[in-house]
Design a protein around this nucleic acid. Structure first.
Lengths: 243, 243
DNA sequence: TATCTCCAAACATCAGACATCCAGATAAGC
DNA sequence: GCTTATCTGGATGTCTGATGTTTGGAGATA
């Protein structure tokens, strides 16, 4: 018995929409740019005009492009809303934006830790302990996969808070700060320090002390942020040396 | 000089997408339902197939419907994500969801008040004072427009916090809790009580006391929530009497 | 009853035609 | 010289007919 899987069946229009959308996301076509005419795109992509128009209309519907009769199709200006860009997997543009998002994370995750200390049930605690054991093990064996357990640990705490809204609010923020999280673990000694802080957080949750949990979590995140900033400055000076 | 405005120029496809999308939002077509066939829709809407397909493909692209070859077009199940439903102006489904959203608002707006106390600039404070004067005036003259200034007051505080991310995170929550806010002001004596709390919040911000500002804001919101719940129970019992 | 065959319905795609719209060039009128 | 009319090429908006694929079910068959 060979392992046959259902063949992918994405419509042409979807593929085209996906292609154009990636081109825009990757900056191949920038906001304000005029896309090639429909006829030209049909030729390049080897598809009929209806198919192309279904794709373009879809992108227009989600506000990614604008179709102007008699003129052409244009890439729309990027949303000014931070939340839109974050949801669209776009990165932050300025230091102020990064700072704001970081602060939002600090607040949300801090409060979530506090709620977790109040609401964690026995099986939640058990799960946290289990992840903690994995983290300890990882650290003793080199720590190459420590960052995965780190993410899992924070995620598990979010679920202890028993508030779906807070969980979903934090998710996109976590996503956009992903590199922020993983990059800051590459410096020597960082993981050991982070691990000590993780232990404190877990202890606070375990002892059902919301204030202590919030404080431990905020301290932990602030440390990560500092490390990240330090790392950024190192990279900058390295760039300067190389240039 | 007459006031001429640019004429509206919405394409047929956009109108059709809008119509179908409203029908779904209003529950005329429910999740799982099969839409009429393309031919049938073309007939009722008096449009060509390409136009209709551009509309349907747009709705399919945002995950509102699913087009299955040989079968038909079906309405997709509503998103399980609270945040999606909130962004799509959908209302909450269960008491737990309302509770979670309320708690998220409490946390966000509480922290925002604290940050406002730290970061409000002279012109921000002036604006808050100005709104406060309007609120006082409104209250003395019957208070029919008090709720408008109430919203404006909370909005102004959000801007004092100087954090765009927190502001945008709170916006949709505010939207979905709009009735929550306005309905709870219809009971006699409520506005006077809310006004006293507003004064306390402003005082805390003015004296640059973050802890006091957070506490005042949280107390205020908790009061509103209690009022709302009380109101809900009143409506329920009234329904029971009428039934 | 179970299975197979075949067909109508429904979406996917294409090609062509015509309408509408826009920007720019050119011409006409003052 | 300035405004206005007209033309024109290119681009999107819309419709229609034809063909390909997929699906579910009706009917035939064993």
């Amino acid at each position: 018995m060979s392992t046959l899987k259902p063949v992918s069946r994405v419509t042409l229009a979807e593929q085209v929409a996906e292609q154009i959308s990636s081109q825009i996301a990757e900056g191949r076509w920038k906001p304000g740019d005029k896309l090639p005419s429909e006829a030209e795109l049909c030729g390049t992509l080897r598809i009929g005009r209806s198919t192309l128009r279904e794709a373009l209309k879809s992108l227009a519907f989600v506000g990614m492009v604008q179709m102007r009769p008699g003129e052409g199709t244009y890439v729309i200006e990027e949303s000014r809303l931070l939340i839109d860009r974050i949801m669209a997997r776009g990165s932050l543009k300025t230091d102020k934006e990064l700072q704001d998002v970081g602060e939002a994370r600090l607040i949300l995750e801090g409060e979530i830790a506090a709620l977790a200390a109040e609401r964690a049930e026995p099986e939640d605690l058990e799960r946290l302990e289990s992840i903690m054991r994995e983290m300890t093990r990882s650290l003793e064996s080199g720590g190459s996969d420590y960052v995965d357990f780190d993410v899992e640990f924070h995620l598990a705490i979010s679920q202890c808070a028993k508030n779906q809204m807070l969980y979903e609010l934090l998710s996109p923020i976590r996503g956009v700060l992903a590199e922020w999280i993983s990059k800051s673990q590459e410096l020597p000694g960082i993981q050991e320090n982070a691990h000590r802080q993780h232990i404190k957080i877990l202890a606070a949750i375990h002892s059902r002390n919301p204030e202590k949990a919030r404080h431990a979590m905020k301290t932990h995140l602030r440390t990560c942020e500092k490390t990240f900033n330090l790392l950024g400055r190192l990279v900058e000076s390295k760039d300067l040396v190389e240039a």
